[in-house]
Computed example of a mutant assay.
Amino acid sequence: MDDALSKILTKPLTSRNARKMERLAGRGLKYGEAAFVADLGIGLARHHRSAAEFDGLFDRLVRLLAVTPGAGHVGQLLRMLAAAGPDDPERDRYLASVLAACRRPADLAVVFDDGDTAAVVSEELRVCLLHELVLRGVPVEEIPGIAGWVTSPHWNGHPLGGLPLTLMVAESEPDLPYYSVDGSSCGLPYGDPEDRHPAPRQADRVPAAVETTTAAIAEALAAPVANWVDEGEQSEARVEARTFAFAEPLEPGAVPYAFVGLSPDCLADLGELPPPGRATAFGVVAVEPAEVWRVLFAAASTGGPYESGCYGAYGRLHAWRALAALAGARADASPGEVEEHVRRCAWYRFGADTPWFHRVVWDLGVLAVGPDRRRLAFLAATATD
């Protein structure tokens, strides 16, 4: 460590000094001094870890190295992270998202290197980064430096190990975040289907139904919005995830009335539906499974109003768990089997102006009718800031 850096680190880590160090790091990167930024982060971890300003400043240095273009920045970032102490899965998920969004795949081969960096790069960072790249359409099995690790069997036992290494048909156009030094942004594809669907016509006959929800199915259905509930009472999150079996096949036109007839909590106090062509407080619209997947993925990856979700890799996992449960696939079904179930189902989004929904941003309503048209599964969720 040179004398100038030692002098900087001997000063107390006040908020004012933290801002000065951040500006100094930014200027250093402009002149290609990524090693200086890494040394600064390492020194902070050694001398100021207990300071109140440490976590925020260290995270800013991580973001600087991750998003600023420059050769060797990723390697220096890994060197700095090695000094940060124990592995942090939440940080790894976040960092994987940032790196995949901001770096060329070739620049990320160092993360998968089994050489000197192997001891300091966590498996969690590698697996999450892998699936963040898959979400961006990167052919990971063809990238030199990545392909060898990807095709090795040692990480197959990881929770993300069962996901395919290419996007399936339903995983089209995911809403992925954009990162800069100063922040991030991401689209929220929830919307409300009621403005593109008139009041449904009265069904001639709706067959009887019995509920078939189990605890395991409900958990899988609600996987994408579990983080909304984890935010605590401040988000006022509500989730309803249920399945039903009908005595006879449902006709497509009967789906809205059949759903209302199940008396779900999310439609309580809906009232009578108006005649077709009139304004309605309830809308059901047929959609492609890709639209349902995008909503589920956004819910899991971006989170609710008070937290940032689980980012892309685990967002992909939770979206597929829910999509598989909606489609009626077995819990241990292969990706190919899940995709076949998804393809054969009829998919819908719904919205309702009822007291159950907060009607802010985080309102979600999706349902699927199985290939035999006797099984209906739905997920409704809402949260507010």
Rank of each mutant, 00 (worst) to 15 (best):
D3Q: 14
A4L: 14
L13H: 08
S15I: 02
G32P: 02
V37W: 02
A38L: 08
G41D: 06
G41Q: 05
A45E: 11
R46C: 08
E53M: 12
E53T: 14
D55Y: 01
D59Y: 00
V62T: 14
R63L: 03
L64M: 14
G70Y: 05
V74Q: 01
D88N: 15
R103I: 05
T117W: 03
V120M: 15
V121W: 00
S122Y: 06
C128A: 15
V138S: 08
E142M: 11
I143S: 04
G145Y: 03
A147T: 13
G162C: 08
P164A: 13
L167V: 11
V169C: 08
Y179W: 14
S180H: 08
S185G: 15
P189D: 12
G191N: 07
D204V: 10
V210M: 11
A216P: 00
A216F: 05
A222L: 10
P224Y: 03
V225G: 01
A226N: 10
A226P: 03
G232D: 12
G232H: 10
E236G: 12
R238A: 11
V239Q: 00
V239D: 00
A241M: 06
A245W: 00
A245S: 10
P249Q: 05
E251G: 02
E251F: 02
E251M: 05
A254T: 12
C266S: 10
A268D: 15
D269Y: 05
L270H: 07
G271Q: 06
P274V: 13
E288F: 06
W293E: 13
A299I: 01
E307L: 03
R343M: 09
D353L: 06
V360R: 13
V360G: 06
V360Y: 13
G365C: 07
L367A: 12
A368Q: 08
V369N: 03
D372H: 08
R375Q: 15
L376Y: 01
F378C: 01
L379Y: 05
D385Q: 12
